[in-house]
């Protein structure tokens, strides 16, 4: 039951993130995968705009995670590319930090087993200047109306 959406510019990716924000609810966990330059952070920046977060959503890669508390929902934005193990990921307690909000994890496929079944996987493929977003819901995400994104 996955959904594919293609964007053809950075602005469209931002807009998709903004639209996606409307689907979010407390406790949501979204794992993003896709290669360097595929637009993972840009999509989350769009989500930040949609959530009314006044701060700039900048890359979390260097600091591993950033917390934004000034939107409609608190948002934790993480990049787990450099973590050595699932144990290290669990030490960070990101799911606790985002308990009253939403959690976005870039390169999240590496920690999926620690997250459990209630999650949305978004995989981004680079197709020239286009980006194909594949939304794959699990658990509670099955009931979410992803079709409104199309």
């Amino acid at each position: 039951m996955s959904l594919d959406i293609t964007t053809s510019s950075p602005d469209e990716t931002l807009a998709l993130g903004r639209k996606f924000a409307a689907l979010l609810t407390v406790g949501d966990i979204v794992l993003l995968s896709g290669r360097l330059g595929s637009g993972k952070t840009l999509f989350v920046a769009g989500v930040g705009e949609g959530l009314g977060i006044p701060d700039r959503i900048t890359s979390p890669s260097f600091v591993i995670s950033r917390i934004y508390r000034d939107g409609f929902l608190p948002m934790v934005h993480a990049d787990v590319y450099r973590l050595g193990s699932i144990a290290e990921f669990e030490d960070l307690e990101l799911t606790d930090d985002s308990g009253d909000g939403v959690l976005f994890i870039e390169w999240g496929e590496t920690v999926a087993e620690s997250i459990g079944d209630d999650r949305l996987d978004i995989h981004i493929d680079i197709e020239g200047t286009d980006r194909r977003f594949r939304f794959e819901p699990s658990g509670a995400w099955y009931d979410r109306d992803l079709a409104v994104l199309g």
Binding site: L36, T41, A45, R56, T58, S59, S61, F62
Partner: peptide, 18 residues
């Protein structure tokens, strides 16, 4: 002002890795 996405050193790191 500042970066709206990656820090300069981060851009160097990611591209060097690539």
């Amino acid at each position: 002002g500042g970066t709206i996405d990656d820090a300069a050193g981060e851009a160097f790191d990611k591209l060097a890795r690539f």
